[in-house]
Design a protein around this nucleic acid. Structure first.
Lengths: 347, 347
DNA sequence: CCCATGCGCTAAATCGCATTAGCGCGTTGC
DNA sequence: GCAACGCGCTAATGCGATTTAGCGCATGGG
């Protein structure tokens, strides 16, 4: 069933049918009788337009390429896709998705494949925030980096979570609860600073934390570097911290998995979370709400990041300055893992 | 840059250029000199074929539609997409993805939109296994159901996890450890049977469990129905079970979140997991490996399910019987939450 | 010497739609 | 009464590739 079939059945030219179906009837002064005939023909034939053909003619596919390193590793990174999907639908676009598995050659190939398919633009996404060079292939057309911070100056815009502000928020939570001493970082080293390689989250969060703490005339009592932020590491690190000279009164765990391990270590040590030691965390994975007491965590705004990337991409023709870095706010999810110091045991 | 440009530059016809670039040189007896000229022209111009145009002509887009209810809720359901993406790439296809958010009208609309884009086929996926009617729109072309079991007879093939066998596996784990009495289900009611509405997992797992237990001359001591399988529910349910007459020696938790709550309840009661009470679970979410002792869980094979769906879709022209239900094995991940009965306290 | 054959390549049609240019007819103006 | 104009619609072209049909030339056979 093609437009020609419909036109023939309605006894009009293809042109007329096209005008009617694309809503240009009035503009083209097609009579309502003719319109009715065409619409009836559409009904009867069950005609559906061939979008491939339309795309070839108009030069617009209404499709956006979404190339990510991996959808698999971080569970709720799927929300990145979710947000992108939603924003795309709001603008009547569909997403063509592919995964590079971290392979640069594959990345280039996939970007080119997508351009060959005449996508309107490409979102190059990482599932965790990291620094990276902008692949040359990306420069061949409109594109946006998602969760990727370009290592060098570039014209490609990027969308990332506001990690520094998140760090400040976490530190403020502790200050407001009266914490001043015995605040430890779990996941990054302090003095000398040591953060997992390539992790924007680690260094920016730490910067934000120290910014706020030093403004309040205090600072971190210490920290334990972890290469990989998993529960076991959090457990071991917390054990270490509990053996330090300055007694731990608050832990800033650099993600929820680390917090999970920290909870186990604190429980093993017979310490009551929030009562003896406060814990703040980052990411707000589901497990944060499962723990008892509920873990206060600064959330990664995956959904919003995904949305934003699409919106920046689609408005590249003006609003957004080329090369702009858009930072998306990380909301604080307050639960019960931070206790007020005056109420703390031994205060 | 079009094929015409390349041809002009090489001093040949578009036809010849097309033959060379599509690897039909020998067949069409194009001389190697001409081939060289064309290849050089391609190099010099940086020509890339316009896939939209090619699709219009050949009628094949090399694109598969992936329509899911939601990528968001279950974290590792992203692995469904991962598997599908991988399988698609193996067959040189790209995936067009969209999400219905459970809205049937949107579902129909998205399926039609994808057909309009001439996708080769559509995978209709649910992020958790459920029964559903096959939407009429899906019948308009090749399609496969993923994680969806058709309520009525249909010609559409489906791919789902083998939940009944998973239930059998879970029960066997307990039997092999010597468990016979005090085996409780956490998540579904027993006597009378009561399972969350629409959940294939619940009823098939239970069927498998009872099958194996009754073959061994025993059965479930009881069960607690939960509408939603979350940690809090698991916690409450386990408390209830611990108050029952027959002492609990083993819990079959219907997913890992429920297990998480069960762990908390068992710890609260001063019971040692594996030593006093064994726990087996389903899904194998990441948290299963974070818990201590590690939670033995029968895994949802998300990646494999995604792969299989694409493979079934692409071989619909023969291999797979129409309407076939493909059940994918759920692998057992043995950790430390099941203890041998002779070693159990009080045995 | 002429026809048949094969070689190496090209002209032109086609896919389904959007769009520009313009056609035929009736009405109006002077 | 004829030009000018507006109305309602259509013919024809192009998007960029693939593919069918066939062209002109050289060669070989009889």
């Amino acid at each position: 069933m093609t437009l020609a079939d419909v036109a023939r059945r309605a006894g009009v030219s293809q042109t007329t049918a096209s005008f009617v179906l694309s809503g240009r009837r009035e503009e083209m002064r097609i009579s309502s009788q003719v319109e009715a005939r065409i619409l009836r023909a559409v009904q009867e034939t069950g005609y559906r337009p061939n979008v491939v053909s339309r795309s070839l003619r108009t030069g617009s596919t209404h499709t956006i390429g979404f190339v990510s390193d991996t959808v698999a590793t971080t569970p709720f990174a799927g929300h990145l896709i979710w947000g992108a999907l939603d924003a795309a639908r709001d603008h009547d676009r569909l997403l063509l998705i592919a995964e590079t598995e971290g392979d640069p050659a594959l990345e280039t190939q996939l970007i080119e494949t997508m351009r060959d398919r005449q996508v309107e633009g490409i979102v190059l996404a990482s599932m965790y925030t990291r620094w990276a060079n902008v692949p040359r292939a990306l420069l061949g057309g409109p594109s946006v980096l998602l969760n990727v911070l370009p290592s060098k100056e570039t014209l490609v815009a990027s969308v990332i979570p506001d990690e520094a502000e998140a760090g400040r928020a976490a530190a403020r939570l502790l200050l407001e609860a009266g914490h001043r001493e015995g605040i430890y970082a779990v996941g990054v080293g302090v003095d000398p600073v040591r953060t997992p390689k390539g992790s924007v989250a680690a260094s920016e969060r730490l910067l934000g934390i120290e910014d706020v703490l030093s403004s309040a005339g205090t600072g971190l009592a210490g920290g334990v570097f972890l290469d990989d932020w998993q529960p076991l590491g959090g457990y071991d690190a917390t054990k270490q911290i509990l053996a330090r000279e300055v007694p731990a009164r608050a832990l800033i765990c650099f993600n929820d998995r680390v917090s999970f391990g920290a909870y186990q270590a604190l429980e093993d040590a017979g310490l009551k979370i929030a009562h003896d030691v406060s814990v703040v965390s980052f990411d707000d994975e589901p497990v944060a709400s499962w723990l008892r007491p509920g873990l206060t965590s600064v959330a990664l705004p995956h959904y919003e990041l995904g949305r934003k990337a699409i919106e920046v991409l689609l408005s590249l023709d003006g609003a957004s300055r080329p090369g702009a870095v858009h930072r998306v706010e990380m909301p604080v999810r307050v639960r019960e893992s931070v206790g007020r110091v005056e109420l703390l045991a031994g205060a």
